[in-house]
Simulated scan of single mutants.
Amino acid sequence: MSDDPAYRPDTRIVRAGRRPEWAQRVVNPPVWRASTILFDDVAAIDEAKAGHGKFYYGLHGTPTQWSLAEALTELEPGAAGTMLYSSGLSAISTALLTVLAPGDDVLIVESAYGPTRRLADGFLKKMGIATRYYAPGVGAGIAQLFLPQTRAVLIESPGSQTFELQDVPAICAAARAAGIATILDNTWASPLLFPAMAAGVDISVLACSKYVGGHSDLMLGSATANAEWFPRLERTTFDIGHNVSPDDAWLGARGLRTMAVRLKAQGAATLEVADWLANRPEVSNVLHPARPDFPGHAIYARDFKGSGTVFSFALATADVARRTRFIEALQLFGIGWSWGGYESLVTPVDPGARTGLPWAPGQLVRLQIGLEDVRDLIADLAQALDTA
């Protein structure tokens, strides 16, 4: 563990999870692959208890997984522990199943990640769990939406695709007063840019395939919880049988060490690209919460420590073919899902899954800004806009 909890995040991200008993004399804890764990005698079997960070059976992890989980916990002041999953969606589903039971009600922000909505409208519904969607700007007013059977609020701020911000501290305070758990999808910001536990969140979820991995070559998720919820999260994770391969955990730990540096460089470039696009006549709206003209920017200025790497903008046209020409004219932006890696990406965005919220007119495009020279990226965007 880090020597001093007062270390700043950039220092903790380098040191966290590197226990001497796990790493020995090497810098990084090695890859421990195991299914069977051997005991010295029968008494040791009787004394052993399955738990996070304890040798019991391969399903419960080895130092390779524990190292990454401990590092992620140390990045989140106020957290009691972290569990790892095979994807961000798996982390979200397990967090929800930790909190909810048949007959319960969950409130989910309208702008949530599409697969989260499908999970709620399909799997949770079949379990007898009701889902209601709320507007991102509800703030403390969410208390008016609570029902006697409401057990959880699922927050995502900024929201997927259209990046609406939420007053997370106000929502969490209202939920805690009512005895309702809060779950935050904090993938866009990570704990480096938005410390979730400090804002009152009970369980914070990351798609570690993004910033933590950083190289677009692994699927990984995490859920970090406070002392009240971590034991239940751990139990649910083990009961369902979740396990992350030590090789993927090792890749995640390696990527984590440079995450702070990548986020700073890519975040600054992202805002520079967003500001440049805002001055182009072909663009009608830029949806980036760090821009002062973005609705809810005051929340960003109050709560966030920097910019994520992904945002959307609206072309000033209703012509889908023109948007397609623009995307396909780009040379430095790969066309592909996900984000958070070192390379720039572009995708068309059609937030049709919403149930009533208005969004910016025009054809939406989502950009992930990588580590390329920002001047080259802007030149590429310029030629693609001219082409389209």
Results as ranks from 00 to 15, higher is better:
287 L>D: 04
6 A>S: 15
137 G>Q: 15
367 L>E: 07
231 P>D: 06
104 D>L: 04
119 L>E: 12
327 I>F: 04
46 D>K: 09
350 D>W: 14
28 N>R: 13
310 V>C: 09
168 V>A: 05
120 A>N: 07
41 D>R: 12
79 A>G: 03
307 S>P: 00
137 G>L: 10
266 Q>E: 13
319 D>W: 02
366 R>M: 12
69 A>Q: 08
135 A>P: 01
17 G>A: 05
308 G>H: 09
204 S>C: 06
152 A>I: 00
104 D>T: 06
141 G>L: 06
102 P>Q: 13
299 I>F: 00
285 N>F: 04
200 G>N: 06
137 G>A: 15
367 L>W: 08
220 L>A: 04
229 W>R: 11
140 A>H: 14
56 Y>S: 11
40 D>Q: 11
218 L>P: 06
231 P>L: 02
205 V>M: 00
144 Q>V: 07
147 L>R: 15
302 R>C: 00
79 A>I: 00
32 W>A: 03
58 G>Q: 05
100 L>E: 08
117 R>M: 14
16 A>Y: 03
322 R>W: 11
6 A>N: 15
241 G>R: 14
323 R>A: 11
246 P>Y: 04
232 R>I: 03
223 A>E: 01
228 E>S: 14
110 E>F: 11
374 V>A: 11
127 M>K: 15
175 A>W: 01
180 I>R: 11
20 P>V: 06
19 R>T: 01
158 P>L: 07
319 D>R: 14
259 M>Y: 04
242 H>M: 10
